[in-house]
C-alpha cells in the first residue's frame, strides 16, 4: 500500500479514513481480524503509535473491537457498516457536487450525464 499522506492533517485521522474505506468497501469483512499495528505501520510507512491512535478512534466509533487475547476485529454490526458506507459515499458526493458547482455545472446536467453511464 503506497499511500501518500498529507503532512498538514493529523496522520492518524488520515489512517482512520483509509481504514474506514477498507471496512466500508468490504476489503476488511465483517468480523474479520485486522492486521496488527506493526504490520499496518510498516505498510503505511508511519509510526506504530499513530496506527494505534487510529485504531482507538475506530474503537470509539464502535467500528472495531479488541478481543484482548486475539487482536482486533471489524465489528459484526452489519448495519453500522452500511451506515458507514452511506456516510462515506455522501461525503464524497457532496465533495463532488461542490466541485461541479464551482465549475458552474448544475445538478440537472449531472443527472443527465449519469443517465448515459
Amino acid at each position: 500500500m503506497n499511500i501518500e499522506f498529507d503532512n498538514f492533517r493529523p496522520i492518524y485521522i488520515q489512517i482512520v479514513e483509509q481504514l474506514k474505506i477498507a471496512i466500508a468497501s468490504g476489503k476488511y469483512q465483517c468480523s474479520e481480524k485486522l492486521p496488527v499495528v506493526r504490520n499496518l505501520a510498516n505498510d503505511f510507512k508511519v509510526n506504530p503509535n499513530t496506527v494505534q491512535r487510529a485504531f482507538m478512534e475506530l474503537e470509539n466509533e464502535k467500528l472495531v473491537y479488541t478481543d484482548r487475547t486475539n487482536g482486533r476485529y471489524v465489528t459484526n454490526d452489519k448495519k453500522l457498516i452500511e451506515k458507514l458506507k452511506l456516510e462515506l459515499a455522501k461525503e464524497k458526493i457532496d465533495e463532488f457536487l461542490n466541485h461541479m458547482h464551482n465549475l458552474g455545472i448544475n445538478n440537472k446536467e449531472i443527472i443527465d450525464y449519469l443517465k448515459t453511464k
Partner: peptide
C-alpha cells in the same frame, strides 16, 4: 504531539 499540532494549526510541521 505532531498530530495535535497539525490539528491545531492545520498545517504541516514543516510549514
Amino acid at each position: 504531539e505532531a498530530d495535535k499540532l497539525r490539528k491545531k494549526e492545520k498545517k504541516s510541521i514543516d510549514a
